[in-house]
Write a protein that binds this DNA or RNA. Structure first.
Length: 874
RNA sequence: GGGCGCGUAGCUCAGUGGGAGAGCGCUCGCUUCACACGCGAGAGGUCGCAGGUUCGAAACCCGCCGCGCCCACCA
């Protein structure tokens, strides 16, 4: 139904046709509406994106793809509802809404789930077995080793099941997604686009490979990125350790929580201004137990107030060590293996020189092969025995960096990884962040803080299996060495490729791994390296130029605040590097769902309260009502009570619609009654408020304004007009019908983004087509409420009539009489102006209050005297 | 340590210069012809604390206290 012609106003407002309305049920109910209407919407393609629409009419949404491993929880329901209300609003405003759904199935969470579910582990050295079936009984203790292609097949099988369940939930919740455009982050399209973007970065020198100290998870045995770290408080102990003097100089005392890394010590540092350390600086000291000579140097990052003012630098205990190592040009002595155990080291060999090779070998022999914690305990014992530990270890609690999905602290291990240049783009990225319109505005600070605090380029390679492979191979020299410096990129036409099974042009399969042959890059991309391209994936960048031009840059990125540093940041980076643009105009940031005790909703709780249960118990509209009450960026308590309130609102809308639409008198051509005109005048203000709130992504305010006015409408306006509604004079009844029709039509559309099921139901009682494709209410529809010299007085009439009705009700309530109890006389004291206005609503008031007589007395202050029939005045 | 947000009725929250509000919960009443998944009424608050600006502050400014989140070089 197009909104562009003013002459449409009358039909759009929904003039009912006369007579009893057979479409209104005897007893309206919410039960079954989800199934009924989600089926109908799919059948009729109500939310299908029409790509023939011109760019300026398109509203494109870059939906967050939920992680498929595990389950959707109420937090997802919460934030996806927010986006859906905006999508529905924009659709009703006449925009063609591009709203696809994606599933993030790629990555570690899926791998971990597949390992547990099937009892397998991936061994890339095994050949593919086409006949493989997973073990009948999954054993976590003794997993079956499977090839990488088999492992990936299992991942795909499991995620497909999950994705079906997720889609079912979203449909039940009523998300107005175009399900024909669904994508997955492991799918062929996402792989192609990720690989193509990577090859572009490589060709432009924006991606590079480097062997360097890298953040490393020793359990998953993969590199991780700075953005994936989180701090956790862990107990530890501070050890004061003596480093012996060389050549008669003084001993050095350092403090450390990681004594197991003494063997990896490459220097001892002091602050340049620290007078106490003057005698040591520029000299050398010996590491205890191992007798390695290490220089004593200075660096401004050393804090003289901490510990003894001296700190040992190890390769590598933390990120500060990396800084010191790099800036002071120190050597590398690595003792930690990629599996988190101490490796063998060649004491006495170059790089491992020692004053006492025998002692070093004996001491280190106690540590070699042990885990970090075992080695730490043993080294403390050795230091105690040798007398190099000063005092007892002092228990401390300190923040330790963990991979957010990991169980042990991250270590820093030297390895070969792919990076994307990030640091050199910092200023552009901040500028893009300032271009972006944030909702709420203050979320921009989180982004800027993050960009300012970046310490390195983005490491995008992961030593894992279920992800997008790097589309490159390497030649192998005649001596069998892999020539990493000469990567062979895949031809673009071949994408997506898997270099572990595909063969580069100009080689034969038999040459894999052979001298003179080739080797595939063994790694996969960080899951964010794919997710950061969601605008390009949904817009089919490079596959469908026409579509991409229509939807990109996108209008809206909705997401929660916890992934600003990952998803939002990396998406801006990739768009900047690939297209030199900001990927969206607006970002709407959702809060979290909190337990009633204000803590972040816990996993266990989230699993008990599954979203499907909530939808079944309260109904989708009710759950959406609760969610829509959470303002942008604000954390919101999980509150079933609010869902009950939402359900009541939906029921109210059913019943109010039944009252207005159950039978349909001949509609009057114009509004005549002052109260009717005043009502529509107020509704004009509500429409304006809801519209401007929605335009600013404040769906919660739009709902609140609409809801508040709707309850007032039911409690006062509907009660006031009941007499005229049932008036035997058809002219009177039809005039009310017109006002009810216009107002109901507006309410049904104002609520449609929030309560899509019940609104579609009541719309279907009297209108053609879906309410979700009906035009958003506009002021022009209500213009007959305005104009004329009586406009101000009409509104006063409505106000004073309602005020008096309230007083009459109060009197009856205090007298413990029913509301229909007759009233002999009502005396209203009020200003002459208000009394004059009251005359306009007199007839409705007398009827609604069962009032026999009404008198006015002009005075300054408002007061009402109510004389119930058969009683003294109250 | 730095940054951001929050602190209003028992609970969840709205309110950004001029009457302290809503819903839930609670109490009382009402089978009223759209609705008992209802209707009507009522009780309940030093707007975290202390100062300042102003004729006037819940709101604006300064400081403090408390809660939450993000970030930071884990010695």
């Amino acid at each position: 139904m197009p909104a562009d012609s003013p002459s449409d106003t009358d039909t759009r407002a929904g003039d009912p046709s006369p007579g009893v309305n057979p479409r209104v049920p005897e007893r309206p109910t919410l039960d079954g509406l989800e199934r009924k209407w989600s089926t109908a919407w799919e059948r009729d393609g109500v939310y299908r994106f029409d790509r023939s629409a011109p760019r300026e009419r398109v509203f494109s949404i870059d939906t967050p793809p939920p992680t498929v491993s595990g389950s959707l929880h109420v937090g997802h329901v919460f934030s996806f509802t927010h986006t859906d209300t905006v999508a529905r609003f924009q659709r009703m405003r006449g925009r063609e809404v591009f709203y696809p759904m994606g599933w993030d199935d790629n990555g570690l969470p899926t791998e971990r789930r597949v390992q547990n579910h099937f009892g397998v582990r991936c061994d890339p050295s095994i050949a593919y077995d086409p006949a493989f079936t997973p073990p009948e009984v999954a054993s976590e203790k003794e997993p079956v080793a499977v090839s990488r292609p088999n492992f990936v097949e299992l991942c795909l099988a499991l995620t497909e099941t999950d994705e079906r369940a997720f889609e079912e939930l979203w449909r039940a919740l009523g998300l107005s997604v175009d399900w024909s455009m669904t994508y997955t982050t492991i799918g062929r399209l996402a792989q192609t686009i990720s690989q193509r973007s990577f090859l572009g970065l490589l060709a432009r020198g924006q991606a590079y490979q480097l062997e360097a100290p890298t953040l490393w998870d020793v359990d998953f045995q993969t590199a991780v990125a700075q953005a994936e770290l989180e701090d956790r408080e862990r107990p530890g102990a501070m050890h004061r350790v003596r480093f012996a003097a060389v050549d008669g100089g003084p001993d050095a005392l350092i403090e450390t929580t990681r004594p197991e890394l003494i063997a990896a010590c490459v220097a001892v540092l002091a602050h340049p201004d620290d007078e106490r350390q003057r005698a040591l600086v520029d000299g050398e000291v010996l590491t205890p137990l191992f007798g390695t000579r290490v220089p004593v140097m200075t660096h401004p990052l050393v804090e003289p107030d901490k510990g003894t003012g001296l700190v040992m630098v190890c390769t590598f205990g933390d990120l500060t060590d990396v800084t010191w190592w790099r800036e002071l040009g120190l050597p590398v002595r690595s003792v930690l293996g990629s599996d988190g155990r101490m490796v063998e080291v060649p004491w006495g060999a170059p790089g491992w020189e020692t004053e006492d090779p025998e002692r070093a070998r004996t001491s280190y022999g106690e540590l070699s092969g042990r885990t970090i914690n075992q080695a730490r305990r043993r080294v403390v014992e050795l230091l105690q025995e040798s007398g190099d530990l000063v005092g007892a270890p002092e228990p401390v609690t300190r923040a330790v960096k963990f991979f957010e999905k990991g169980d042990r602290p991250v270590e820093i291990v030297t390895s070969r990884q792919w990076f994307i240049h990030t640091l050199e783009h910092r200023e552009e990225l901040i500028a893009r962040g300032r271009e972006l319109r944030w909702h709420p505005e203050y979320m921009r600070a989180r982004y800027e803080d993050w960009v300012q605090g970046l310490t390195g380029d983005w490491c995008i390679s992961r030593q894992r299996f279920f992800g997008v492979p790097f589309p490159v191979w390497y030649p192998i020299g005649a001596d069998g060495a892999i020539l990493y410096e000469q990567p062979i990129p895949a031809e673009e036409a071949r994408l997506p490729v898997d270099p572990s099974t595909d063969v580069p042009d100009g080689f034969l399969p038999e040459q894999r791994g052979q001298p003179g042959g080739f080797a595939g890059d063994p790694d996969v991309m960080d899951t964010w390296a794919t997710s950061s391209l969601t605008p390009q994936i949904v817009g089919r960048s490079g596959e469908d130029a026409e579509l991409f031009a229509k939807v990109f840059p996108m209008d809206l990125r909705p997401q929660a605040h916890d992934i600003i540093r990952t998803w939002l940041f990396s998406t801006i980076l990739r768009s900047q590097l690939d297209d030199g643009v900001l990927p969206w105009r607006d970002a709407a940031i959702s809060g979290w769902v909190l337990d009633p005790d204000r803590k972040k909703m816990s996993k266990s709780k989230g699993n008990v309260v599954t979203p499907m249960h909530l939808l079944e118990e309260y109904g989708a509209d009710a759950v959406r009502y609760w969610a829509a009450g959470g303002r942008p960026g604000t954390d919101t308590a999980f509150d079933p009570q609010q869902m009950k309130v939402g359900r009541r609102l939906a029921v109210k809308l059913l019943n109010a619609s039944k009252f207005a639409l159950a039978d349909l008198p001949t509609p009057a051509p114009r509004l005549a009654h002052p109260l009717d005109r005043a009502l529509l005048g107020r509704l004009t203000g509500v429409v304006a408020a809801a519209t401007s709130s929605f335009e600013a992504y404040d769906y919660a305010r739009a709902l609140e304004r609409t809801e508040t006015f709707f309850w007032w409408y039911c409690d006062f306006y509907l009660e006031l007009v009941k007499g005229r509604r049932y008036d035997p004079d058809p002219a009177v009844a039809s005039a009310v019908s017109r006002a009810l029709g216009i107002s109901l039509s507006v309410f049904q559309r104002l609520f449609a983004p929030f309560l899509p099921f019940v609104c579609e139901e009541v719309w279907g009682w009297w209108q053609e087509g879906s309410v979700h494709r009906a035009p958003w209410p506009a002021a022009e529809e209500l213009e007959e409420a305005h104009g004329g010299e009586q406009e101000a007085m009409q509104d006063t009439a409505l106000a004073v009539t309602a005020d008096v009705l309230r007083e009459v009700r109060k009197a009856k309530s205090e007298a413990r009489r029913p509301m229909r109890a007759p009233v002999e006389l009502v005396i209203v004291e009020d200003t002459p102006e208000r009394l004059q206005a009251l005359e306009l609503g007199r007839d409705d008031l007398l009827q609604a209050g069962s009032i026999g007589a009404l008198e006015g007395r002009p005075v300054e202050d408002f007061a009402v005297e109510v004389k119930l029939a058969g009683e003294a005045a109250g």
